[in-house]
Design a protein around this nucleic acid. Structure first.
Lengths: 347, 347
DNA sequence: CGCCATCTTGTAAACCTTTTCATCAACCGG
DNA sequence: CCGGTTGATGAAAAGGTTTACAAGATGGCG
């Protein structure tokens, strides 16, 4: 396309040196008022902006951040991505988007590419599937961090001083189960999950802990995080009951799984919440529109994401090693668990 | 962070000049086999990759593309974004994500920023709200195109030779209405929309045209594109009937609006599909999980997005002026419109 | 054996900024 | 009136790569 006007063009037309132009533009050093005006006029005339690739080279700051998530289409990550991008923009940075599917590890090639781009930092989010890829993921993050600031969202536990914001995944289960408990449920099953072997700060962990406190044996666990998988989960759960009484309440890994469960339950004639209670997770936009509207948990991703992003850009001057913060979910009560008489909202 | 190894380091250690290193890396020019091996060994040893900001400067190609959409959280754009990013990656490019809310025009500042980043191209998608911002958007795209390749997804009509992929938005309405017609409906209303004054290739246009062919007066139109707005739309539609018989079928602007409508209809005791048929649009992931599952239209966004992206990168060598392609939606029949007796799928 | 074409490699310019250092003028206090 | 600041500006280096051009070596051919 057309040639870009450079700082030389501006300098020539304004009758000054390029150093002076640079000074009036970046505004750091003193320039005589009259000179500044003259330069500014030419700058305005040509709508000149210094090439960010050139400034990137000389300043060693690209004003570009990376976002690494499994898949934008997952509404959980959509939310995160919206908040991250908007916050980055507010802080004068652009965001490069990368999707690396869950369970896929960060290849050396991928990381080299990030490094070659000289990003000012990177946000990494995405659970890990099993111990092998978990270790690989952590290894990858550590390697990346050696080259650029990194903050992780939703790491399971503090490790190697990686700056990290942890969503209260285990708390989700705890909150949900306590809620169900108050409504009189004891036979509670967890459906869906990511099938990881290491359980620290996962919904699985919270479920197991809370059931133990309750003195109830946990139900067999199933794997899945999408709506179709949610359907399969209830089928599979029901098939694995082996004589044990059917649960009176289901806790879904997320709202997607809950949606699938809802459909499958309906299909086989189990009513929600009359026959079985159901609680979702993530408070997705569609949760209020399920039938019945889903009781769910809000993980405050937007807030967390914003914080992660501002932390990341501050990391360019401050040291974030070992930074760590936990976020607690809040319960959103709708109708999928039924109500005690005095809890029922005014109709 | 740690200093990066540069081409100088490699050259020194391999005992050659930087030009030679560059040649073995980019592989264009002939290098003696033995020299190549020696350089490659050092490159491997340090895991060297040329800085993309430096190559960007000297080659005038950043291998970076921009994606401009209104809001990732909207599942329509999520889908698009997934496909765009993945395809770009496949073609060895990274994607910068920008969200500019619908109705907000591209500010000069924003565009200058894109230009300053020396992007290799940009994908623009996002309907426009009214004529003023539509003109502004077109103006913006034209200005951008003067500086870098651009392809638009879902422009309403060919204009000024902007390369453009058009989703068959009007066809959606036509397809939906013809389907409803076959099921015996004539009193059909459109709910939701973007409230634009210029109707070319919009669902509104298709609706109006098709109703005219049908010899039916169109129902008043409402505005909205989210689920909560969908609820409001049915309320507002019902309030504006003014004595006219209630429609027997509703066509929603998209699945989100349909979801909202479903909820509101249920609330006021109108059953779907028994009392009123409903068709959505976009075939979102949640459409099969609505109750009843939504009959909807698939716009083939993934395919379109992939094409848009590959077009964009090819645009760096080819001329795309005036390129234009239309995509036709396909109807996805589920249960929200009911069935003629012989159409009912096997239970 | 001399000349030309071919390979291989190095030097240096170009890409576009920022920033350090130097220069020069003006100004201040003594 | 002079040495020392201070302020404004330019020259040039640095940042990391690609590439046009030059140069040296090698081989073929007459």
């Amino acid at each position: 396309m057309s040639e870009h006007t450079t700082i030389f063009d501006i300098a020539r037309e304004a009758g000054v040196s390029i150093a002076t132009v640079s000074r009036v533009i970046s505004g750091g050093a003193p320039v005589r008022a009259e000179t500044r005006e003259r330069v500014l006029a030419v700058v305005a005339k040509y709508n000149f902006r210094p090439s960010l690739v050139a400034t990137g080279l000389s300043r060693k700051k690209t004003h570009t951040l990376g976002i690494i998530i499994p898949l934008i289409e997952n509404p959980f990550y959509s939310k995160m991505c919206v908040a991250l991008q908007l916050e980055a923009e507010r802080l004068n940075h652009s965001t490069l988007l990368f999707q690396v599917p869950r369970g896929t590890m960060l290849t050396q090639d991928f990381m080299d590419q990030l490094i070659a781009r000289r990003l000012d930092g990177v946000i990494f989010s995405g659970d890990v599937t099993d111990d092998a890829s978990s270790d690989a993921a952590v290894e990858g993050m550590l390697q990346l961090r050696r080259q650029m600031p990194l903050v992780a969202i939703n790491l399971r536990e503090a490790c190697h001083g990686l700056p990290c914001l942890m969503l209260g995944l285990a708390s989700c289960s705890a909150l949900a189960i306590r809620h169900l408990r108050k409504l009189g449920h004891r036979r509670i099953a967890l459906i869906g999950g990511v099938g990881s072997a290491q359980l620290t700060n996962t919904r699985e962990q919270g479920y197991l802990d809370e059931m133990e406190k309750l003195g109830e044996a946990p139900y067999p666990m199933t794997v899945g995080e999408s709506a179709p998988e949610g359907e399969a989960c209830v089928t599979s759960l029901l098939a694995q009951l082996g004589g044990r009484a059917r649960p009176t309440a289901l806790m879904a890994f997320n709202d997607l799984v809950a949606l699938g469960a809802l459909r499958q339950l309906k299909r086989i004639g189990i009513r929600v919440p009359e026959d079985i209670a159901l609680v979702g997770c993530d408070n997705q936009f569609f949760a209020p529109y399920a039938d019945p509207p889903l009781t769910t948990l809000d993980l405050h991703i937007e807030e967390t994401s914003r914080l992660a992003m501002s932390l990341l850009v501050s990391a360019q001057t401050a040291n974030l090693d070992g930074f760590e913060q936990h976020f607690e979910p809040t319960l959103i009560v709708r109708e999928s668990c039924g109500f005690l008489l005095n809890d029922r909202p005014p109709a």
